[in-house]
């Protein structure tokens, strides 16, 4: 089965696979490995017995304890990034069977239901590899600084409650706030390309992640104070206008964040911002 069908179809396929998963099977993991920056990459395969409820993490754990390839060569444990394993921290994101997702929530039953099925694991391609499946996503956090992703409070001293907020507004903001900075939207975005030169980050495409976060803070009563600065940053090179509306971001977002709506909303803000600037004659 081609792994590149429409998203909903993919979900159905995974559900169907789960039902027909064979117990006591072994699955081949093909893993793209790299010993460090500037080193060559190679593929290694491992045959892993699958226990009930196994996911990519438990499989990588198995390799760590038994680092021997299918050819019987002893190798080193695979290096990868992970933390919560509940799909809420975003750390263990990687490219599985050609598509980006979290490895903790990737159940083997859904991808490799039969004995001898193959799964491929690759590091995200839009960030520099540190080692094996572990990539350096610093740019993603740097982009949060670029859009001033915070509420400019006066300080941490007691100054009473925050602004009142309607139920609807909270629900809207909550949907945006669930973003865990995993980078799926960036990996799948054709406009977001790998950039290793840190000095270029502020003028390279910022991606759906930070655009949506900018909207999140623009929607807060106090966060609004920085709206003009955020829109300045997002109107420039690598800002909102660089989006090509491929809308892969919203398809691969594990948290179902309405990223394309955020892009539309920030597009609108940018339009209004430009009109305002033009007629106020500030710049």
């Amino acid at each position: 089965m081609s792994e590149a069908e429409a998203y909903s179809y993919d979900a159905d396929m995974r559900k169907a696979n789960r039902k027909q998963a064979v117990e006591g099977r072994s699955v081949i993991f093909k893993i793209k490995r790299c010993d460090g920056p500037g080193k060559s990459t190679r593929w290694e395969s491992f045959k892993i017995p699958i226990e009930t409820g196994a996911n990519v993490i438990s499989s990588l754990n198995w390799i760590a304890a038994n680092p021997v390839t299918v050819e019987g060569t002893k190798t080193t444990p695979v290096v990868w990034d992970s933390s919560c394993l509940e799909e809420v921290c975003g750390a263990c994101t990687m490219v599985i069977n050609g598509r980006v997702r979290q490895s903790c929530s990737c159940l083997i039953d859904e991808y490799a239901p039969k004995d001898g099925d193959v799964m491929t694991l690759e590091p995200m391609s839009k960030f520099p590899v540190i080692r094996d499946l572990w990539v350096d996503r610093q740019r993603l956090f740097s982009n949060l600084t670029r859009v001033k992703g915070w509420v400019p409070i006066d300080g941490t001293y007691n100054m009473g409650a925050g602004p009142k907020e309607s139920h609807e507004q909270q629900q809207m903001r909550y949907a945006l706030s669930e973003c865990m900075s995993c980078g799926c939207c960036l990996e799948a975005c054709p406009q977001f390309t790998k950039e290793e030169d840190e000095s270029q980050w502020d003028s390279s495409f910022v991606g759906a992640h930070a655009i949506s976060q900018a909207r999140y803070f623009n929607e807060h009563e106090t966060g609004k104070q920085l709206k003009d600065e955020r829109m300045d940053a997002l109107s420039g090179a690598g800002g909102i206008n660089d989006c090509g509306n491929a809308q892969n971001c919203v398809k691969v977002c594990p948290k179902g964040i309405p990223l394309t709506e955020s892009i539309g909303a920030i597009g609108r803000s940018a339009t209004m911002h430009a009109i305002k600037q033009f007629f106020q004659g500030k710049k």
Binding site: W150, V151, I153, T156, N158, M159, G160, A161, G162, E165, S166, H167, Q169, Q170, R173, Y174, S177, F217, H220, T222, G223
Partner: peptide, 15 residues
């Protein structure tokens, strides 16, 4: 709680 509220935590809201 007030401080977190001011920082923008989207606490659930009543009607």
């Amino acid at each position: 709680i007030d401080l977190l509220d001011r920082m923008g935590v989207p606490f659930n809201r009543s009607n």
